[in-house]
Write a protein that binds this DNA or RNA. Structure first.
Lengths: 224, 224
DNA sequence: GGTAATATGTAACATATGTTACATATTTCA
DNA sequence: TGAAATATGTAACATATGTTACATATTACC
């Protein structure tokens, strides 16, 4: 395993490679390689180590009571796995973890990680940032899911992106991605966008959306 | 402010009060009291300190673009405020924070908190547990929200409550409360419950639900 | 025990969204 | 550049859920 991959992982961000090396020499850790398609962890298994994807891409698959896959999330390098489940009261993988491509993971046990965090404030900050960002992502997602209507979700997305003064945004996701993020059908995004345009709230063309009637647009964001 | 409140807060859990005192003497912190109804922080304000509710109860209120309150979350003592927004890339309060009752808060600035975390592994672990538990709570909530159908949510609720072997549960919420939790209309809960019964999946009578056909019930949990 | 408040059951109807099925546009990449 | 993959636009139709409007049942409380 290439050490430069480790030193470029988010846990060691901001450290010069030499510093990372010297720190790593003081703790025990290991790296592990997985073949494309192989199972890295099963839902329900205890999470005992921090796992960082150094290369390749892994996938979390939620499995329902009937054994069907109901939700997937891809984690490309460099990203951390199940970072919110190493600490806290639930210490088991909430999903199956599968290696999509050939991949390489960095494993640091919980005890060693704690040592590491207390040793170097930069690494501590990095780790806190990793799990906080995860939490912020989930918060944001819940905010969107709690709008009942698609026009509500879309309006919120547009207004948030535009900021208090902006009158035009460029969507940073495809409609397909937006649909996945909102948990709705792709066609419904297209329809809502079209309707908002027809009603004179926005002017939508490709990825660019111009806000025409901010008041009317904002009124949709109340649908909770 | 009573020091015993501080030493019983989740950040200092597991430490003897004397230890907490000696640690606190080494860092700077402050406590602040709020009257019932007063505003503690406004959405958009920077989060610069860890805030722990020592006494009383505070409320997070999400406000939409039209100024309406669309979602509330109560945080009773002893709980932390906006713990996921002190670190990570978004460092602003996502909601307005209001004091519901008269309340007392412990404030520790980010820099001082980092010092504290590196000083004592017990406190570090406590803080990691706090933010990880928050993340886990959000994950669980998202799981629920991502079931598309009410029968799906209900089935998941029933099967989770029954456990892998149980065949009977007593609902711990009224239908009205369940409706609020799921974010759906009350009548729709009654209808879904009735339908699941009519289809022979469950036998529902008052607050007691008996699982008749686990297979069929589980099949609804696939509706994502 | 009796009355008010709250919870639940049920039905008819309205509507937002999913589904299916294409056509067209845009991007990717050999 | 050209072909293939992916993204977007649009329509007809099915359906789950919200809405409204009650009746009945259960619980709380004087």
């Amino acid at each position: 395993m290439d050490y430069s991959l480790i030193s470029h992982s988010p846990l060691f961000k901001g450290l010069v490679p030499e510093e990372t090396l010297s720190i790593l020499s003081g703790i025990s850790f290991r790296t592990k390689k997985y073949r494309a398609g192989s199972m890295i962890a099963q839902a329900g298994e205890p999470v005992t180590s921090l796992m960082v994807v150094l290369e390749g891409r892994v996938r979390g698959e939620m499995v329902d009571f009937a054994g069907r896959v109901i939700k997937i999330e891809d984690i490309p390098a460099p990203g951390a796995l199940a970072s919110a489940f190493l600490f806290g009261s639930a210490n088991r993988f909430p999903v199956n973890i599968i290696s999509v491509t050939d991949s390489g993971l960095l494993l640091i046990t919980k005890d060693e990680l704690i040592k590491l965090l207390m040793l170097n404030d930069n690494i501590l900050l990095n780790f806190l940032n990793i799990i906080s960002n995860r939490s912020q992502f989930l918060s944001e997602k819940i905010k969107f899911l709690s709008f009942k209507t698609i026009k509500g979700k879309l309006s919120h997305y547009i207004l948030q992106k535009a900021g208090p003064d902006g009158d035009s945004i460029v969507m940073d996701m495809t409609q397909t991605e937006l649909a996945g993020f909102f948990g709705v059908a792709r066609e419904s995004i297209a329809r809502a966008l079209h309707d908002l345009d027809a009603e004179g709230c926005i002017s939508s063309k490709g990825k660019r959306v111009r806000i025409i009637d901010r008041r009317a647009l904002a009124s949709y964001v109340g649908d909770h």
